[in-house]
């Protein structure tokens, strides 16, 4: 039986109140669905004295698709987002990606903001206290040694958030609020810059700051994105391979620009530009070159389950399958849009 440690729960009634409480430091943590945080508090590798519940704050609600940029509140549930008519029409790959997070119950409670702030995962961390203690801990859990890269100086636990690669290729930005000199101010940061390469604190949101929304620019004519996830089971599992591809084609079907974002490497997802192939028409030969390019620049680590060399090969296959949805959709096996 796993129990939460004793802690205090504060239900924030205003954004300013939440930010003030969170400024106390890492002992105070924001909570939305809690589907990641509660498990991590129970297994003891996340510590907190105070949970600040932010699910009711109006700034964190709703999908607003009225402008050129769609605003999605951080507290919008993953299940809600996966069936939102505007998201399904404008960003079907985002709806698909959030609809593949964990399980139906977790998507009913979990939020977009929560997924973006998902803690990094590693087979040496996501274990019981006893298990970690027996191993002598690791860089992220009260130890001095990394078991993934022996002698390594930084934590390389993996970012496994399904929503991140697709939001990166869509060019989305995070809206982050804080209180400065008594006034509420917000800053915007591209999702691609939201993550640091140290898995101990990989989300670049400071104490006293809060992710309140995500802004996704509507796609121009000729642009489309695809998300591919590979996990062992169809449900519940975190991705073991996670990749999003976006291509912008001109009216003649030639590539104007393209992007590939890769998750489940280390703490920081990788974003690659495909501009070198601008002006080319996508076919099997070009797709294989792109898949090889991604393979050459991506190095999955033995930080999550399943052989990392297999995951690297699988990444190449998933990139190829993503690209085939443009020129040979009937040939694409498995899911992915």
């Amino acid at each position: 039986m796993l129990r939460l440690p004793e802690l205090e729960v504060i239900i924030a009634t205003s954004l300013t109140e939440a930010l003030t409480r969170l400024a106390a430091g890492p002992a105070a943590r924001p909570i939305l669905g809690g589907t990641d945080l509660v498990a991590n508090l129970k297994t003891g590798h996340t510590k907190a004295q105070t949970l600040v519940a932010i699910g009711q704050l109006p700034e964190l609600q709703g999908v607003d698709a009225s402008g050129d940029v769609v605003r999605i509140g951080a507290a919008v549930h993953q299940a809600e987002l996966a069936r939102d008519p505007d998201i399904l029409e404008l960003f079907p790959a985002l709806a698909y990606a959030v609809g593949r997070i964990a399980s139906p119950q977790i998507r009913n409670a979990g939020t977009l903001g929560g997924n973006l702030c998902l803690d990094t995962r590693c087979r040496f961390i996501n274990q019981s206290d006893l298990w970690r203690e027996a191993l002598g801990g690791c860089l992220k859990s009260h130890g001095k040694e990394c078991h993934v890269i022996p002698g390594g100086g930084g934590c390389v636990a993996a970012l496994s958030a399904d929503s991140v690669p697709i939001l990166m290729v869509l060019g989305a930005e995070a809206e982050i609020a804080r209180v400065q000199d008594g006034a509420l101010v917000t800053r915007r940061t591209p999702i691609a810059d939201l993550y640091d390469s140290d898995g101990r604190r990989h989300v670049r949101i400071a104490d006293g700051e809060l992710l309140v929304a995500v802004h996704v620019p509507k796609l121009p004519h000729g642009a489309r994105a695809v998300y591919r996830k590979w996990a062992v089971r169809q449900s519940i599992d975190f991705p073991l391979v996670s990749v999003a591809v976006r291509l912008d084609l001109d009216d003649a079907g030639k590539l104007k620009q393209g992007k590939v974002a890769i998750g489940v490497l280390g703490p920081r997802p990788r974003l690659l530009a495909l501009d070198r192939w601008a002006g080319r028409t996508l076919d099997e030969d070009l797709a294989k070159q792109v898949a090889q390019y991604v393979f050459d620049r991506s190095h999955p680590l033995p930080n999550v389950l399943y052989d990392h060399e297999y995951r690297r090969e699988r990444l190449r296959v998933e990139v190829l399958r993503a690209l085939r949805t443009w020129y040979a959709p009937a040939a694409v096996g498995g899911a992915g849009r």
Binding site: L2, G34, T35, V38, A39, L51, P104, Q105, N108, A109
Partner: peptide, 23 residues
């Protein structure tokens, strides 16, 4: 007790959720 198995599923405002993960 950590959100993997679904044995604790209840409905919260109609939607199935995991009661072991719900404060």
């Amino acid at each position: 007790d950590k959100g993997d198995c679904g044995a604790c599923t209840v409905r919260l405002d109609g939607a199935p959720v995991l009661s072991c993960m719900t404060l």
